[in-house]
Design a protein around this nucleic acid. Structure first.
Lengths: 319, 319
DNA sequence: TATACTTACTTAAACGTTTAAGTAACCTGT
DNA sequence: ACAGGTTACTTAAACGTTTAAGTAAGTATA
């Protein structure tokens, strides 16, 4: 691997001049510039990023911190979007995962302090016990009292949109199923209550079910709880993927007239699509893009940190 | 951020001694060792990885190179497995994506030459026009003539397993649907032919359909081609995820007696699961783990590079 | 014609590590 | 008592960059 010294020697100049040419950070005569570029090309010179970052005291890498559990989101799509936007800005993306015994703050902090990344994108709100002070952007609602920027998929908007859709097709008794792993479950609830009030629908606490996890089994349980009551609900919004499919299956089992239930899944996972459920689609591509852009902004100090809410769109499917 | 100099000053020793203590690469007296460790702890010292890697002339990062299209595999799961195993070995994982105009070799080579990673895990066989000579491990069948190690999900094994399962339940006319994006499509075909021969079943070229992409629409087209012929096939193995669901839908549309078709999807994506299709499950966790281990082996030169085939297991679902 | 300014480069220090080579102090065996 | 060896440290160079400071020309100004 050729170094800057090799290029300098080949071009008959000092390493400084080579650096000036490559970064054009100082005026260089056209003839010299050409000699340097030719030498670099001929030696197939690639600047060493480690040395660059060490010298510049800033890494050109962004870290993506994965939660220990599988999130509802399309991780592959989000990753791809982040990588695309970061690459465009000359940054690379590092992925780190939380060990079960590790706190989020600890991992993020260490990644930053070791110089392995210039900033972090945090995919989960859990485990942020200690306050963490490096440049970080949250992909979910950050812990209370945090001033860090965030780009979130807002559950409140999701719930409102779903309730409106239900009401437009004449549904009156609308249920809500949440999971403990749902990012910003409180927001879903808030949007649900708001939309009910705005639509002049009564609120019945029995129509709200809190689940533990986001999987089929939990959906079955939630469905049983939901469809046990006497006045059946005729529409359900489920803040989950597999969870929604589980609720659907529970309903099919409990009731013969399956078409009397409208169901909207909060996240359009392939599982949900395969089951033919209507679902909310979040703009993953834009999400990743905005997360990276917010982080770059934070690093460059161009604009003050801010929070962005992404809106879902509704995709209607008929089973 | 505290540096090794700060620790040295605080402990009253030279930076060399601090380094010796932290890496225990040289004998240090117990009292000094303790003083150094105390100072490091108190200053919350984290060694700078950039400087370390620069000095040691080897990065502690592994690069995962994503293909430009969405693969059939569970990217999130694979990523998680790679990160887990790499972290365990003291390595980090960098993700890079191929731009559409870029060759695989170019990207991998540059990533290595810039010192951003010590080795690459390549998720796709396409675009490897130039030979690439850095330490790389393939996650699919590498281009011909390559001696690099690989850990692949073998389509031949998959096809054989599926044909056996079909034959056991009395099916005779077994179809095969491939996609251009299928990694190692030739292997699927090979296994299919072998299993037919082993099972003394006749080979009918009309029962093999080659598709372009792996999505629902392509599945519809493949299904129409497959079910147009006079002697209907009674079982199909589809080397894809969405593709399989498409074939299923085409069959439902074409024929009233839907239960007369057995179908096995080559990859158990959530979409396939949601559609209730039987499918082949690949051990993603082990895949990622082995990929990383092979790469580390290659870097350390412990064992010679080798190829590993992973076997799928069959998960049977009834619609 | 001496002076100041510009241009195009070079020299050398710095970033935070690791490690070979150097150096005191102490122990050992004759 | 003195060579030879061990132990526990320090000094300084190196990894591949960037960049402030220095310098030697050429060019404009008075």
């Amino acid at each position: 691997m050729a170094t800057i010294k090799d290029v300098a020697r080949a071009a008959g100049v000092s390493t400084a001049t080579v650096s000036y040419v490559l970064n054009d950070s100082a005026p260089v005569s056209p003839t010299t510039r050409e000699r340097v570029l030719a030498a670099a090309q001929q030696l197939n010179y690639q600047p060493n990023q480690l040395a660059r970052n060490l010298q510049n005291q800033r890494s050109t890498t962004l870290a993506l911190v994965l939660p220990p559990f599988e999130p509802e989101i399309d991780l592959g799509g989000l990753l791809r979007a982040c990588v695309a936007r970061a690459t465009q800005a000359g940054y690379a993306v590092l992925v780190t995962a939380l060990a079960s015994d590790q706190s989020l703050a600890e991992l993020a902090q260490r990644t930053l302090e070791r110089g392995m990344a210039a900033g972090c994108i945090l995919l989960q709100p859990h485990g942020a016990d200690q306050p963490l002070n490096g440049p970080c952007v949250w992909a979910t609602w950050p812990p209370h009292g945090t001033h860090a920027p965030a780009v979130v998929c807002d559950g409140a908007l999701a719930a409102q949109r779903a309730v409106h859709a239900f009401q437009r097709s004449g549904r009156q008794r609308i249920g809500l199923v949440l999971a403990a792993t749902t990012a910003g479950a409180a927001r879903w609830y808030l949007g649900y209550r708001r939309a009910l009030k705005a639509g002049r629908l009564p609120f019945d606490p029995e129509l709200v079910v809190q689940s533990d996890t986001d999987d089929l089994a939990a959906g079955h349980a939630a469905g049983e709880a939901l469809f046990a009551g006497a006045p059946l609900c005729d529409a359900v919004i489920v803040a989950g993927g597999a969870l929604a499919v589980g609720v659907q299956q529970a309903h099919l089992r409990a009731s013969a007239h399956a078409e009397s239930l409208q169901l909207i899944a909060g996240f359009d996972t392939p599982l949900v699509a395969g089951a033919g459920l209507s679902a909310l689609v979040w703009p993953v591509e834009r999400w990743g893009q905005l997360l990276v852009e917010q982080l770059l902004n934070l690093l460059n100090g161009h604009t003050p940190p801010q929070r962005t809410c992404l809106e879902p769109s509704l995709i209607v499917r008929s089973t």
